[in-house]
Each structure stands twice: as C-alpha cells, then as structure tokens.
C-alpha cells in the first residue's frame, strides 16, 4: 500500500511540476515580448554568464580535444588512417561532443548559480520586496537570465569547440608533425552546413533549457535555506537530463532535414 501511494504521489508530482515548468515558460515568452525591457540588466547577465564560465569552458574544451585525439590516434594509426584524424575529431567535436559536454558544464556552473541566487532571494524576501516596490521581478530576474543563457551558451559552445580543436591540433602537431594550416584545412574541408547549422541551432535550445530550469527552481523554491540547496541541486539534475532529451530530438530533426 505505501509503495503504491508513494509511486502515485511521485508520478503526480512529476506531472504537476512539468505543467508548472510549461506555465513558467509561457509566462517567460509573454513577459519577454512586452515593454518595459530590462536591457541594462540583460547585458549585465550576459556578462556574468559568459565571464563566469569562460575559463571552465576553455579548460574543458582543451582537455576534450587533447584526450579525444590522444585516445583515437593509435587506432587510426593501426588502420593507416591517421591522415583522417583532423576531419574525424572536427566532426565529432562540432556535431556532438562539443555542444553536449559544454552545455553540461554550463548546466552545472550557470544553472546551479541561477537556482541558488534566485532561491536565496526568494527566501530572504528580496523578490517580494521588488514586487511591492512596483517592479515586476519576473521580468527583471527571470526574463533577463533566460535570455542571457539562451544567447551566451551558443557563444560558449563555439569558444569551447575552437579550444578543443586547438587541443587536438597540439597533439597532432606533436605526434604527427601536422602544421596548423594543414590541420584546420582538413577540419573545415570535412565540415558542411549539415554539421554546423544543427549543431549551433541546438545550443540555443540548450541555453534556454539551462536558464529556464535554473530560474524555475530558484524562483519557486520553498522551505527556507534547505530549499535553496535543493533548488541549486535539482536545477543541475533536471537541466542535464533535459539537455540529453533535447539533443536526441535535435539529432532526429537534423537527420530529417540534413540527411546526416
């Protein structure tokens, strides 16, 4: 009996929360399209989101490029196909590994930060204080943050991809004496619009999902300081899962339109 009860209440909570996220997203679109626009705060949030993740994304990208090339090279050599290394690494990073890994890093860094910040503002009544001063806190806090992540995550992914390719080049240069120009010629000769457009387009959705879930969890957090921790934690978990779902959908859609 208790197991059935918990399963049922867990399932109900899941559907209830999915509905709440949906309503939250709908409110975002409604508020984002109406004046007044918080342009200054949006720029500030873009700077915070980009600046606070730049080093982490750069390091992740570099290690991703180094490791991927170091681990793949011996196998490619066995087949006498080391000349294809730049093309293979380029396609893997640009199409799939770069966007997904960097978006996951952003979910951890940015999503948790937004969840914790808004959660603590809620608990300390700062959001209520904004509301009673005649300011729309949703527009000021939520709309700006979701827009900032939607705009900045794609830029961070492009930056991370570039660093990853550079890391791959370093290994190729050391092991195979490949020049910078030759390496990047081979990379870009292999890449087409079918690789670049879907890979870039999906990062906007990744950024939106990270901002949406972070803001939702923080803005609706309850139960005091424990709720703040829970908001930060669940923002990362839910956003990460959502990224995989979105990636799967993006691959399906890209397959239809670009015949991957």
């Amino acid at each position: 009996m208790p197991a059935t009860y918990y399963q049922r209440s867990g399932l109900r909570r899941y559907f209830q929360e999915t509905g709440e996220v949906w309503l939250f997203a709908r409110r975002f679109f409604k508020e984002a399209l109406h004046r007044p626009f918080e342009g200054k705060e949006l720029l500030r949030q873009c700077f915070i989101v980009g600046n606070q993740s730049l080093f982490l994304v750069g390091m992740t990208g570099l290690i991703m490029g180094l490791v991927l090339t170091l681990q793949t090279r011996p196998t490619m050599e066995d087949f006498g196909a080391e000349a294809y290394m730049p093309a293979m690494v380029g396609v893997s990073i640009i199409r799939e590994i770069g966007p997904v890994v960097i978006a996951l890093i952003c979910a951890g860094k940015i999503g948790s930060s937004i969840g914790a910040e808004l959660g603590s503002m809620k608990v300390t009544e700062q959001i209520a204080a904004m509301e009673v001063s005649g300011t729309n806190p949703f527009k000021y806090l939520v709309v700006t943050r979701i827009l900032a992540t939607t705009l900045m995550v794609p830029l961070l992914v492009i930056f991370g991809d570039a660093i990853a390719l550079f890391g791959s080049f370093l290994v190729e240069h050391m092991k195979g004496d490949v020049s910078f120009r030759l390496f990047f010629n081979k990379v870009f000769r292999q890449l087409g619009f079918g690789d670049l457009i879907p890979a870039t387009a999906k990062t906007f959705f990744f950024g939106f999902a990270i901002g949406l879930i972070g803001c939702f969890k923080g803005y609706t957090s309850k139960k005091g300081t424990a709720g703040v921790g829970r908001a930060a934690n669940t923002a990362v978990v839910v956003a990460s899962m959502l990224l995989f779902v979105l990636d799967f959908i993006a691959v399906l859609v890209a397959d239809i339109f670009f015949d991957l």
């Binding site: 300390t124 009544e125 700062q126 204080a129 009673v132 005649g134």
Partner: peptide
C-alpha cells in the same frame, strides 16, 4: 504599490 511602503522583517535588501 508606490504609495504603500513595506518594511520587511528581515530588511530584504538586494544583496547584490
């Protein structure tokens, strides 16, 4: 709301 001020118990200053 601009005609009605509200002083919160915990002050609720914007800490950023």
């Amino acid at each position: 709301r601009t005609e009605v001020g509200f002083l919160f118990q915990g002050s609720a200053l914007y800490d950023s």
